[in-house]
């Protein structure tokens, strides 16, 4: 199981929790589990999100592994100028 930190404006979709636990072993699995277990997150996940895994920010990196002790933070999809 992996603990995923949810950013503030999405917490209403996870009953106000700061973090939730999902069964996943990689980037894709985390997002799939979040969308499955918390349907209120689906629209945001489909619109685009990033994941910070152990301090590194990943975008669309399906096969990046996550472990039970990984720090996983759901973040908006990052863009720049």
């Amino acid at each position: 199981m992996v603990q995923v930190v949810i950013w503030g404006s999405l917490r209403s979709a996870v009953d106000g929790a700061v973090q939730v636990e999902v069964e996943a072993c990689d980037f894709r699995g985390v997002l799939a589990a979040l969308a499955r277990d918390y349907p209120g997150l689906r629209a945001q996940i489909e619109a685009g999100v990033s994941l910070s895994i152990d301090g590194k920010i990943y975008r669309e990196a399906w096969f990046t592994p996550v472990h039970a002790d990984s720090e996983v933070v759901l973040m908006p999809f990052m863009v720049g100028g």
């Binding site: 950013w7 152990d54 301090g55 720090e71 973040m75």
Partner: peptide, 17 residues
């Protein structure tokens, strides 16, 4: 005195390397 550094939990969630 207040600077983020390695190990700081950033205001947006992750821990800095």
């Amino acid at each position: 005195k207040n600077a983020a550094r390695k190990g700081t939990k950033a205001s947006y969630g992750p821990t800095f390397d």
